[in-house]
Amino acid sequence: MLEIINLHAGVQGNEILKGIDLKVNVGEVHAIMGPNGSGKSTLAQVLAGRESFAITEGRVLYEGRDLLARAPEDRARQGLFMAFQYPVEIPGVTNTYFLKSGLNAIRKHRGLEELDAIEFLQLAKERAKLVDMDESLLNRPINHGFSGGEKKRNEIFQMAVLEPKLAILDETDSGLDIDALRIVANGINKLRRKDNAIILVTHYQRILNYVVPDFVHVLIDGQIVHSGGKELALELEERGYDWVRDDAEKAIVSS
């Protein structure tokens, strides 16, 4: 489904991603873990099409075709979704208005009928339940005045409405108390299917108790330095990142 090959990207001559290789198949859940500043959000945003990052080397294939040349909206229409680490507040635009517009663009691309306002509202209300999101948030301006937890729920709510094939969730667990975390994780699990894939970007092992990944990757200083199964997350929780970093350096020295 997704293949990242030797991806280098950065801003203003400052390289942040320094050769990422990653392969995600349909039906899999991958966790990407790493210390702050290691490039996790950069990777997520580059995949979603953020133009402020320059790609200097490498390729990304999505469903076998080049992803990087496409506009962010085209990626979304082809089933890619990113939950923002820091969802943007947009005063003056209601949540449902913009999401309806996005969903209909995606549906049109998939050859489906567009939903009218009533049909959309029905769907939105139903999906809001999935993340226990208060219905009153639907008609509020996007993320405006939302609490941290409400913003994160809003991201997963949007995912539930748009039904992506590949979802990249950037630290959706950060800043949530344990109850909210459980609700959000539950929502993600309900959206986990055999015909889609999820990349969970996280700083903490905690969420992985609820959303159990098939693979765990460690991203340090713009490179994936270690990959393993779900038990790797526990090891990272216990021992921190330093040992992976040291091992990786040793590996570089000896090679």
């Binding site: 099409g49 506009a71 909206e73 969802p87 947009i90 003056g92 913009f98 663009a105 748009l162």
Partner: peptide, 22 residues
């Protein structure tokens, strides 16, 4: 904000219009 809207499938033009109207 433009990127946020586009990442949900809204076209660049429409995203700009939405924000201008807002």
């Amino acid at each position: 904000a433009i990127f946020y809207l586009r990442s949900r499938g809204v076209s660049l033009e429409k995203a700009r219009d939405i924000l201008i109207y807002a």
